[in-house]
Every structure is written in structure tokens, then in C-alpha cells.
Design a protein around this nucleic acid. Structure first.
Lengths: 204, 204
DNA sequence: TTCATTATGATACGAACGTATCAGATACGG
DNA sequence: CCGTATCTGATACGTTCGTATCATAATGAA
């Protein structure tokens, strides 16, 4: 047997190059040659592992989804570990929402790539499919947290958890887009989020 | 003097072709030749009026902004005219928010084009400038309406108009994106909007 | 060592695209 | 009718890009 290589790992390495280029110069600027150079491999190898550019983009999106979910769950468990014992639902929810804002360069890049993929998926059914395979939407998670908060009497009044979660999640996405564009500042956005958390949970 | 032509009108006509192509096939698929064919003019004329493709895209965005503002104000005045006398702030606000949802093919196309431009503007400062020239952001308008509603005792409780407007507007944008992707249905989105309007204005 | 797997290099083909150029047609006000 | 503004047509150049091809090197388990 010859040299054994983790093909999946290779593909992830090349997919990461796609993310970097897409974040820095837009998804339109992603081409096979630049991806190869960014990944530090030959053009031939990119062809070898992905066959076509379309395949490359689709798989890069799948890997991005995977990483995003992993990081989100890791962040939540980290928050739970920081405050041993009883962590208030409000604090956890706040961290979950922050996860979808460009709070640092890494989150900023991820969001830029996601939005680029989103727009392209509007005209590419195959990419759209890669988007919509999210079996557990974020809205359900947030709605579940709100229901849980209601049962533990953390909420200030009776609410419709689904409706609240829908606007909260969609709102955070929209606010994140404004942040990317420089139309808002992070302080202001966090102020808005905290205002609405206070509206739900009462004064902290 | 020879034939007199409204240059600005010609440019708008060609810009409309850009919108149609961008809505149907994405902004990446917009090229000078297809724009000319869609507008029913020669490639040479597109070059004649816009010089470069970059100019074409920037001006097409400016015209799109203009049309959007005109249609929004027209919609508001139409609502005010429909209910002579006292039109509740809630009803007007609901129509304003609906204006940013893909409620029909026309709004759907406009939203698709806007989002495509948004993503491209993240890597194109000149396009970003065309975006950010909005002297009167929608959030200010909504916040003003909420303040006005408070003064006329239409609100159910004391609120922070700015914070409420920020989440409402951002939320509608985010919900509109979900609609485009088919992740939500219009009925559900309107239900969410009405829920939050009720939260602010009380039962209708 | 052997040999299949992994990887590179060089190159080429065809298509799409932005841009430029030149000639000429059309139409309308004076 | 004349002249100018408006518009078309054909064409071409250079670049970029996806994809394909062929030869060849490096690697490491059997």
C-alpha cells in the first residue's frame, strides 16, 4: 500500500482556502487557481479532489456549516462551564445570539462567506439545498430556551415563544448585516439586544 | 439641432434591464452584452451611456434606490388616502414594514437585487458608498412613528422607540431573506409582525 | 525493492467577458 | 436639405477562467 492520506482532511484544508478568499474578496473572486495557491497545493490537486468548481463550492459550504455548528455548541458549553451551578437562561441566550454577530475577525469572515453563499443560493438550487439541510433551525433552539425560561419563572410576562424567537433571530441576522456594512456599531447592537432581553426577562 | 433624447431616461431604461437580469440570474450574470439584449439596444449603446461596467452597476443601484423610495412614499400616501380622517399609526407602520417583504414578484425581484448588491458592496467601496447615501434610514422613520404613536396614546406601555424600531426593521429584513429562501411562508411572517405590533399597540 | 497512491508541473483549449475601434445608418431640428 | 446627435453593426484584442491532458516525481506500506 502506498502513502495513506485522509482525503476528507485534505478537502477541508482546501475548503478553508475557499473561505479565506471568499471572505477577503467575495465569492465571485473564488477560482480554482487562487484556491490552490491559498491552500498551498497545486491546481491539479484541487481538480483531483473536487473535480469541478461547483463541487468545490458546495462542499466548502457543507464544511462551513459543520464548523459553525461545532463552534456554536462549543461556545454554549463554555458559557455553561464558566458559571457552574445555575446559569440563567438570559445569559446563555445572549451568548447564542452573539454567536451570529461579527464580534471578531473570525465571526466577521464567517458571516461574510455565509451571506455570499446565501445570495448565490438564490440562483443555484444545489447550493440552496446545502443551506436548507439545517435539521435544527436556530429559531427552534431560541424558542425552546424561552419556553424553558418561562417554566422556571424567569420571564417578566407571558409571551409567544415562537414569535419572540423569530423576530429575535431574524433581527440579530439583520443587525449583523448592518454591522458588516458599517451602518451600526457593535455597542449599539448589543444595547438593542440587551434592551429586548430586558423586555423579556426584566431588569438583570 | 438633431434628435433630442432624454439621456437620463435612456440610462434608467438600461438600468431596468440590469435589475431584471440580476433578479433572474444573479448579479454575477450581469454582463454588458446581455444587458444590451435585455434592454433592446445595442452593446455599443450601453458602452455609450455608461462607459464601464462598474459605472453601469453603480448607477443601476442609484436608480434602484430612487425607485424604492418613490414607491415607499407612494404606498404610504395610498394607505393614508384609503382611510380618510384618522389612520392609526399601527396600520401605516404595518404597510411600511410590508414594503420590505417579498409580497409579490415585483418586491421579490427588488429584494433579490438589493441583497446581491449588498453582498457585492462588502468588497466594493464604491458600491458601498451608493448604499450608504441613504440620508433618512428606515429605522428613524419607524422610530418616529412609534414616538408619534406614544404621544397619541396608541401604545400599550412605555417603550424605547429606537430599540423597538431597530429590532423591528432588522427583523423584517431577516424575515424577508428567509422568505426568499423558502424557509418561511408569508402568512407566518405576517403573523410574527402582527404579534409584535400587538405587543406594542395592544389588541387591535 | 516494488508499486500503487498521492501530488506536481507544464500546457493547452475553448468560452466568456470588458473594452476598444471604425464605419455607417437613422432621425430630427434648423 | 443639412448637419449633428443618436444609435447600430461588425469585429477584434487581451485577459481570465474552467477544464482537460500527459508526463513525472515523491512517498511509504507490503
Amino acid at each position: 500500500m502506498p502513502k495513506r492520506v485522509d482525503h476528507d482532511e485534505r478537502r477541508r484544508q482546501i475548503a478553508a482556502a475557499v473561505w479565506r478568499i471568499a471572505a477577503d474578496h467575495g465569492l465571485d473572486s473564488v477560482n480554482m487557481r487562487d484556491v490552490a495557491a491559498e491552500a498551498g497545493v497545486s491546481l491539479r490537486l484541487v481538480q483531483y479532489y473536487f473535480e469541478t468548481k461547483h463541487n468545490l463550492l458546495v462542499l466548502a459550504l457543507r464544511y462551513l456549516n459543520e464548523r459553525g455548528e461545532q463552534r456554536a455548541t462549543a461556545r454554549i458549553t463554555a458559557v455553561l462551564a464558566e458559571t457552574p451551578g445555575a446559569t440563567s437562561t438570559r445569559v446563555v441566550l445572549r451568548e447564542v445570539l452573539k454567536e451570529f454577530l461579527p464580534i471578531d475577525d473570525e465571526h466577521r469572515d464567517t458571516l461574510r462567506v455565509y451571506l455570499a453563499y446565501y445570495v448565490r443560493s438564490l440562483n443555484d438550487p444545489e447550493l440552496a439545498a446545502a443551506f436548507l439541510t439545517d435539521e435544527t433551525p436556530l429559531e427552534d433552539l431560541v424558542a425552546g430556551m424561552l419556553d424553558q425560561a418561562h417554566e422556571s419563572h424567569e420571564l417578566v410576562c407571558r409571551i409567544d415563544a415562537k414569535r419572540e424567537a423569530d423576530l429575535l433571530v431574524s433581527g440579530v441576522n439583520g443587525l449583523g448585516m448592518d454591522l458588516l456594512q458599517g451602518r451600526r456599531q457593535l455597542d449599539d447592537v448589543m444595547g438593542t439586544i440587551d434592551y429586548h432581553l430586558t423586555r423579556l426577562f426584566g431588569e438583570p
